[in-house]
Write a protein that binds this DNA or RNA. Structure first.
Lengths: 279, 279
DNA sequence: GGCTATATGGAATATGTGTTCCATTAACCG
DNA sequence: CGGTTAATGGAACACATATTCCATATAGCC
């Protein structure tokens, strides 16, 4: 078997011969295709852990593809990793964007991707500073004490709400996504009980559904946590706890990175408190 | 010993104390500042060769900055390079324990938020390099040519799909979110026409709905674009265009930052091509 | 120039790594 | 159902690596 001499060739070889590989070797091949960087740098024990395949199988895999051992294969992948980034593309593009480079009249798709990545990273950078730490912990406490958590978000905020509901469920919390499908937001709202919690996510321009939902729930005396961009917005008033997030904007499209990151952290914090108590 | 816990902090620490370091240690510090990637991955012997400093000096350098040894420092730099999966969970804990780690006893909510923000930012930083540029542009072209775009994603991928559908609509594209509510994914699939496009988003463990949906649509001859984490996963086969994304992981919870950013960029790129043509 | 304190390199060591080999298991086919 | 082949996991091994330790060199100071 002729030894592979470039990382790209190796990838292609694995793809080509993938079907005829044994299950174990497929397992290892999949890992290398999915994450060639880790595969090239991590120790065999770590790879073994992540793939579930014993070290000897990894060596066998490498030999199957013409290498002397796993070490040779890793050298290939490692070189590829190091060669690929001499302070490359991203930083330059991101910087150009942040400096307000108007000199690129026709940004291609990849440029836009770079812009967006830069803007998102920027949003995350400011997230820690803009979010009130005490409020954040307070919000986690509210999650903990709630019987059931109802999560609501419309239009642009809907994906964020969906993810929060999903994550809370995965963390063992009873969570319901108020999606308002078929105009049933009102009906769903009526099912929010006294010991429950409503988490509302809404940004300017605020969806009417969210505003009325929050006011309605507030009148029932149910606790409300709100994630929004302004403490004086219409959805902020009924909130018992308010988390302020400021997302960045690119060419008229606002990022979701900040909000997404925030709700992810919320869900994880909740899940983590459980394990801390049980431990 | 005040242990550094992020690569950026280490860089700053080296810069700050640089002048008061001994010549040899400066030599090593310079190398780490110049090429942190190699410094994190290469063996001590190699670094020794390149810097001219003996291995023991490298160890001493690491200890000067609060690490137990060179290995700990390299782990930090390596994680920065790989971005995803900062040597997750079990192994790191075990090692920290064996090394007598006194830190990270119990991370509070704010710590988790910080961790998450950091991990997400890193994921974004590496997104450009991990995404195949040609494929990305190809995918935008497919969006442009499609009559109607159907977006599908289940479980964890649902928020991503929801946002892509929303963004495309805002960008003037006829887009439909295949949400499978009430088990109607099958019915919705039948409405996907020949000139349409299916964008499927799915990550391991792959939802059965997505796999069968993709296969079903592929048989009808409809073009398919897939956003996933593995080129050999079950959803990858029917794809005409495949975008590979590797999301970061924090304490067992995977981030959505990479995928979200990618679909946002997709939608914007599409919208932008329209304005370019009309301009 | 002697003395002290610090810096340094290299040999010895201990730990961890990749690799080999073989017993065992599973799959396949007659 | 027996026999053959391929696949697999794990223990033993050999190797390389990071680390420690100490003898030596260097610089600073009285």
């Amino acid at each position: 078997m002729a030894a592979t001499d470039s990382a790209q060739q190796l990838r292609e070889a694995i793809l080509e011969r993938f079907d005829e590989l044994s299950p174990r070797l497929q397992q290892i091949g999949r890992y290398i295709l999915d994450d060639p960087n880790s595969a090239g740098v991590e120790t065999l024990a770590v790879i073994s852990d992540r793939t579930g395949a014993p070290p000897s199988a990894i060596v066998r895999f490498a030999q199957t593809f013409g290498f002397n051992g796993a070490a040779s294969m890793q050298r290939l992948l490692k070189d590829q990793l190091l060669a690929a980034r001499p302070e490359s593309g991203y930083h330059r593009r991101a910087r150009e964007f942040l400096e307000g480079a108007e000199d690129t009249p026709l940004p291609g798709p990849v440029d836009l991707l770079a812009e967006f990545a830069g803007a998102s990273a920027l949003a995350l950078e400011h997230l820690l500073q803009s979010v009130d730490h005490d409020r954040f912990e307070e919000c986690v406490a509210m999650l903990r004490e709630a019987e059931t958590v109802h999560v609501a978000g419309f239009r642009r905020s809907f994906p964020v709400a969906a993810y929060l509901a999903y994550s809370l469920q995965r963390g063992g919390k009873r969570a319901i996504l108020v999606d308002g499908i078929g105009g049933m937001a009102g009906l769903q709202a009526n099912r929010i009980g006294k010991g429950d919690l409503l988490v509302g996510i809404s940004f300017s321009p605020y969806a009417d559904e969210m505003v009325s939902l929050a006011e309605h729930v507030a009148q029932a005396g149910t606790p409300i946590a709100i994630i929004t961009d302004s403490p004086v917005g219409p959805v902020a008033k009924p909130a018992n706890c308010l988390l302020q997030v400021r997302d960045t904007e690119v060419r008229g499209f606002r990022t979701l990175s900040g909000s997404m990151c925030l709700v992810q952290a919320l869900a994880i914090s909740y899940a983590f408190e459980l394990t801390k108590i049980s431990a």
